[in-house]
Deep mutational scan, measured.
Amino acid sequence: GIDPFTGEAIAKFNFNGDTQVEMSFRKGERITLLRQVDENWYEGRIPGTSRQGIFPITYVDVIKRPL
């Protein structure tokens, strides 16, 4: 089901994660935001896939912030 505490964002740019914990994505992908890790990073996942990880806040347009 849908978790009411998650947020939502759209990727503004392609992001290629450097490490296992970073999640790569392509511009235009819809991302579920799980939490804000710190002032620069979100943790999120791509709905319908097993992809999950952290990524820079500046790479996405936030539609709804996670609670």
Rank of each mutant, 00 (worst) to 15 (best):
G1C: 15
G1N: 12
I2R: 10
I2K: 13
D3R: 07
P4A: 13
P4E: 13
P4L: 15
P4I: 13
F5N: 13
F5T: 12
F5Q: 15
F5C: 15
F5S: 12
F5W: 15
T6P: 13
T6A: 13
E8M: 12
E8V: 12
A9L: 05
A9T: 03
A9K: 02
I10F: 06
K12D: 02
K12E: 03
K12G: 03
F13D: 13
N14D: 15
N14L: 04
F15P: 00
F15Y: 12
F15D: 06
N16A: 10
N16H: 12
N16L: 11
G17P: 06
D18T: 13
D18Y: 13
D18W: 10
T19R: 12
T19N: 12
T19Q: 10
Q20R: 11
V21C: 15
V21I: 13
E22G: 06
M23K: 00
M23P: 01
M23I: 07
S24W: 06
S24T: 08
F25G: 01
F25I: 07
F25T: 01
F25V: 04
R26T: 14
R26Y: 11
R26E: 14
R26L: 14
K27S: 09
K27A: 14
G28I: 01
G28T: 02
G28M: 03
E29D: 06
E29H: 02
E29Y: 01
R30G: 05
R30F: 12
R30S: 08
I31A: 00
I31P: 00
T32I: 15
T32H: 08
L33I: 09
L33E: 04
L34T: 08
L34K: 03
L34F: 06
R35G: 07
Q36L: 09
Q36I: 09
V37Y: 08
D38G: 10
E39C: 15
E39R: 09
N40E: 13
N40I: 14
W41R: 07
W41Y: 10
W41T: 10
Y42P: 01
Y42V: 06
Y42G: 03
Y42T: 03
Y42N: 01
E43Y: 14
E43T: 04
G44A: 02
G44C: 01
G44T: 01
G44M: 01
R45M: 11
P47C: 08
P47I: 09
G48F: 08
G48I: 02
G48W: 06
S50K: 11
S50L: 11
S50P: 10
S50M: 12
R51V: 04
R51L: 04
R51C: 04
Q52G: 06
Q52F: 11
G53W: 01
G53K: 00
G53H: 00
F55E: 00
P56E: 03
P56G: 01
P56R: 03
I57M: 09
T58P: 08
Y59L: 10
Y59Q: 06
Y59M: 14
Y59D: 03
V60M: 03
D61F: 14
V62E: 04
V62P: 05
V62C: 05
K64D: 10
R65E: 15
R65M: 15
P66E: 11
L67K: 15
L67W: 04
